[in-house]
Design a binder for these strands. Structure first.
Length: 439
DNA sequence: TCTGGGGTCCTAGGACCC
DNA sequence: TCTGGGGTCCTAGGACCC
């Protein structure tokens, strides 16, 4: 059996953890730049605040209902997420724990006797809640897709299920699938849901009966077939090896204000490259492909039409040799900005993507590259030192700055373009100067 | 005024090989 | 009149996830 354990309204729960006064009050958390609502508690949901709604549209109801509102505080969420996952790794062999997202985790429970499953899930839940203070839900079933179904139903009726559902018989599974609309299945998005509904397929149970040839043709080939097989109880999606590294690394942000100056675009791009290169080194990879893109300001969307981003202006270079050295990546990225930037345009967003990742230990030396293209031992040591200092001081009271202690000059220091975070809570668990005080 | 960020996997089709 | 068969590799784009 497999299980998925996820944190209830994770970002909101993190905010509540340090403010017990918010315990039964509605809470929402906003995306970067205070753009959209990306987490909401049951109370906020009950007041009719939709997930993903732009903040400025929800402002009226937020004020009217006195909904507590926070900018996203990833230092805090990242730290609490780590505590939840670490707790699970203490309760299960670590290779049976697959961290799927910041607030979700797949578990392999094959070693638990069927009769004990429910109790074991309850034990996991109670321990995580006691050790971290974050409430969680658990769904268990023979496959990943079915465990997602179970988890959703467990959360939907918290009082009846106690946030735990185990699908350990064909009858329970059938009932669960009949109660699950297709669009709420893991792997069915807007497009497929529409297609299925037009064919009269409304629930997971309906989908499970469909002919695999049709699925193969109409639902993304093997992806759809795998989904339906999983609905039938045939495990097709294994737990992922916890040691797999990323194949692509991206850092992209909306600007906090409109940007028209090339200098500012370059500062932002250099900042994003720095961040991406840090992630690169953390997984011991080197990148051979670098892409930079800019998003220009969107035209007014026609009334009633969905919001769309402005034109995407992107460029890509193949590096002469894979590297994880920030200065080399910045140089290449700024060259791209020179090619992409058009004076007179207004930009809303920029991003950097690193691809063609290879293990840093086995970088192929370029035949025609000048000898200095290979990062030297000193350059490696330099980057390691920069990372160590920044990681350490990011959490230190004496350097409680918004920016890193060590920065590249190309990243600038005006940073007018930085994102807005008007409602950020203190970083209770990762900054000494922002720790919770009891009076 | 104002609409997030970071990923994965798969397919189709083109270019190219012998 | 009539133009094979069997591959590989790459890219762009679609769909999905949280």
């Amino acid at each position: 059996m497999k299980a998925i354990l996820d944190c209830n309204s994770f970002y909101c729960s993190c905010e509540r953890l340090f403010r017990p006064a918010l315990l039964r009050r509605p809470v929402v958390v906003l995306s970067n730049n205070d753009g959209c609502i990306i987490s909401r508690t049951d109370e906020a949901k009950a007041l009719g605040v939709p997930m993903g709604q732009p903040y400025f549209q929800a402002k009226d109801i937020i004020l009217q209902e006195k909904i507590a509102t926070f900018s996203s505080n990833y230092n805090l969420y990242g730290d609490l997420s780590w505590r939840v996952m670490e707790t699970l790794r203490q309760l299960l062999p670590p290779e049976k724990v697959e961290v799927y997202s910041v607030d979700e985790c797949f578990l392999d429970l094959d070693h638990i006797a069927p009769a004990q499953l429910h109790d074991f899930c309850a034990h996991l839940k109670a321990t995580v809640e006691q050790w971290t203070g974050i409430a969680v839900s658990v769904g268990a079933a023979p496959t990943k897709v079915l465990s997602k179904v179970a988890n959703r139903l467990a959360k939907k009726d918290k009082a009846a299920t106690g946030c735990i559902m185990v699908l350990d018989s064909p009858e329970k599974t059938a009932a669960a699938l009949r109660a699950t609309p297709v669009e709420d299945l893991w792997g069915v998005g807007r497009q497929y849901a529409l297609k299925l509904r037009q064919r009269g397929i409304f629930t997971g149970w309906d989908l499970r009966q469909l002919n695999l040839n049709w699925i193969q043709k109409e639902m993304g080939g093997v992806v759809g077939v795998r989904l339906v097989r999983e609905l039938r109880g045939e495990a097709c999606i294994d737990l992922k090896d916890p040691l797999t590294v990323k194949k692509m690394i991206a850092t992209t942000r909306m600007f906090g204000v409109n940007v028209t100056l090339k200098k500012e675009i370059k500062e932002a791009v250099a900042t994003y490259v720095t961040r991406a290169a840090e992630k690169l080194r953390r997984q011991d990879s080197a990148a051979s492909l670098l892409e930079v893109f800019l998003i220009a300001k969107a035209e007014e969307p026609p009334p009633g039409k969905r919001f769309r981003h402005g034109p995407h202006i992107g460029g890509c270079v193949e590096l002469p040799q894979a590297t994880d050295h920030t200065p080399d990546l910045i140089t290449a990225a700024l060259d791209l900005v020179d090619q992409l930037f058009e004076a007179g345009r207004t930009y809303k967003k920029a991003g950097v993507m690193l691809g063609g990742l290879v293990p840093v230990g086995s970088v192929q030396t370029a035949l025609f590259a000048p000898p200095k293209a290979t990062p030297t031992r000193q350059q490696r040591q330099l980057m390691a030192a920069v990372d160590n200092i920044n990681f350490a001081l990011r959490n230190d009271v004496f350097f409680a700055l918004r920016n890193d202690v060590l920065q590249f000059a190309a990243a600038g220091n005006g940073r007018r373009w930085k994102m807005r975070q008007e409602h950020r809570s203190p970083r209770y668990t990762s900054r000494w100067d922002e720790i919770c005080e009891v009076k």
